[in-house]
Write a protein that binds this DNA or RNA. Structure first.
Length: 493
RNA sequence: GCUGCCAUCGUCUAGAGGUUUAGGACAUCGCCCUCUCAAGGCGGAGAUCACGGGUUCAAAUCCCGUUGGCAGCGCCA
């Protein structure tokens, strides 16, 4: 056992989006591939923006995607609860280490007001320098400090950034990255309200949770030197870092709300399969040497490795995801697919779509259309004509197949013949027998098979596209087929 | 503005100095199969490996520069 430990640490300020899922996925896959542990930590220290609903949305998404975590502060039935930073804050976890840093001279209280800090930033920017805190509270005497404390009870704690030297990050994906410390400022580690900031809470928790590998998006890369400095000050071993490339929208900017669907839950609503999304996301920034495209979840857990993660950003491409979804749908057994569909109906509150439909007929009709289904939401339209008594005849289909000058005579003939002969058909209404009947009819009347097949298709389904005609007829049954043909005859001839 | 990261077909990518006329997948186009639509099979088109300099007998692969894209620079995470 290698004992690697990784975590996914989302902030609950909205739905879990595609980028977040990819981060969670890679962490989870890495853990599984190494027989390590995967932890979920909710970073809810932004009291203004964190919401209970977002926490639930993240948990729901993780559950749907089957990204399970292996540890937590408590258990709810068979599942672990995630870690919550605000709960840990209540336990004094972060304050303790902030105090330690101040005591050891690695951090100091700062009494500057928001206005003062804004002013500094503006000035720095005007001088074309990186916006930076000017450290005025760093050199306060004990006396100054006492006086300030009386005036403003609440100070923030800033970390003393060394200004000489560089901080070196040996990234597992990018190799060596060097940062000049003089560009980094004395950042805040504890807010005035006693809540830790991201960079601080993250380090404390990663250490306390024994995280060995920090696998995250490369938008965090410039935070890393700050975090490394905290580890050093506390004399803690720095974990290994791996920064993966971002996922971009089709316009090249980082994926965001502007790009339409970004929340995983929206993909679920559209009728994407969990496995398709996972498979697709795995391919965004990771690949195998043989360029394998379709993976089972098990294969991913087995084959994933950080070394094979790429460094360049990837554009999210719905076309390929859609293909993969069809691929996954085709790989399902009829039973699995039906269950998936029912889950989707429930999830999207669309159960009324199949109200009154015969379940057995539904299952069988889905089977006939399986290879065509790209999204679960396609299913109702694909099969609904089986269930409606008064089917909707597509205008174009009727005009082209039944009523055009070229086709109307043969169409009328075929339908009239079929209505009579099929009604007489005694026992065998199998696809095989029906096909034989249709081919014989074409031969007998000396017309093309298509001139027999197409009118029947339109008469019983109202469409030019659909499942294999004779399987469709077999499934509908004799009475219904004959009835529909008669209806069509009365309607159009 | 400063700092950092990145740069191979439209998109995801393979490629770690010679085995590359740069391979695979999606999309696209054509053909085959065929009762329609799909699915499947076969094939085509599509990348002077961002550009410019080096290093080397040899570079998509190493080095430098340029350009472009993205990211970070909060009492957000």
């Amino acid at each position: 056992m290698s004992g690697i430990r990784v975590r996914f640490a989302p902030s609950p300020t909205g739905d879990l989006h595609i980028g977040g899922v990819r981060t969670a996925l890679f962490n989870c896959l890495f853990a599984k591939s190494q027989a390590g542990k995967f932890i979920l930590r909710i970073e809810d220290t932004d009291e203004a923006r964190s919401t209970e609903g977002s926490v639930q949305a993240i948990l729901d998404a993780m559950k749907w995607l089957e990204l399970g975590w292996d540890e937590g502060p408590g258990r709810e039935e068979t599942k672990y609860s995630p870690y919550y930073q605000m709960k840990r804050k209540e336990q004094g976890v972060y304050q303790r280490y902030a105090d330690e840093l101040v005591a050891k001279g690695f951090a100091y209280p700062c009494y500057c007001t928001q206005e003062e800090v804004d002013e500094m930033r503006k000035k720095a920017q005007a001088d074309k320098l990186p916006p930076k805190y000017d450290r005025r509270c760093r050199y306060l005497t004990a006396e100054d400090r006492k006086r300030k404390e009386n005036k403003w009870a609440k100070a923030v704690i800033r970390f003393k950034m060394p200004d000489s030297e560089t901080t070196i990050l040996n990234d597992l994906i990018r190799g060596k990255v060097e940062f000049n410390n003089s560009l980094l400022d004395d950042f805040i580690i504890m807010k005035a309200n006693g809540v830790p900031t991201y960079n601080f809470a993250c380090v404390i928790d990663d250490y306390l949770m024994d995280i060995t590998h920090v696998l995250r998006g490369d938008d965090h890369i410039s935070n890393t030197p700050r975090q490394i400095r905290i580890y050093d000050a506390l004399n803690w071993q720095v974990p290994k870092f791996a920064h993966m490339a971002m996922i971009l929208g089709s316009d090249g900017a980082r994926l965001s709300k502007r790009h339409g669907h970004t929340s995983v839950l929206e993909y679920r609503k559209e009728g994407y399969l969990q496995e398709a999304l996972i498979n697709y996301l795995a391919l965004l920034g990771w690949s195998t040497e043989d360029s394998q495209q379709v993976f089972t979840i098990e294969e991913l857990k087995q084959k994933f490795s950080i070394e094979r993660c790429g460094t360049s950003p990837a554009t999210f491409d719905t076309e390929k995801l859609l293909w993969l979804n069809g691929e996954k749908i085709r790989s399902k057994t009829p039973k699995q697919l039906f269950e998936l569909f029912v889950d989707w109906l429930k999830y999207t509150n669309n159960e009324k779509l199949i109200e009154g439909w015969d379940i057995e007929l539904l299952q069988k009709s889905i089977l006939l259309e399986q290879e065509k289904i790209k999204l679960l939401k396609d299913i109702p339209f694909l099969v609904n004509f089986f269930f409606t008594k008064d089917i909707e005849y597509q205008e174009e289909a009727v005009n082209k197949i039944l009523l055009s000058d070229k086709s109307k005579d043969s169409a009328e003939l075929v339908l009239n013949e079929s209505a009579v002969i099929l009604a007489r058909q005694q026992q065998d209404f199998s696809a095989l027998a029906l096909e034989k009947y249709a081919r014989d009819l074409a031969k007998e009347k000396n017309i093309k098979t298509g001139q027999v097949f197409h009118p029947i298709r339109v008469a019983i389904s109202g469409r030019t596209q659909g499942p294999s005609l004779f399987h469709m007829m077999e499934l509908m049954g004799k009475d219904e087929v004959v009835r529909r043909i008669s209806v069509a005859i009365n309607k159009f001839f």
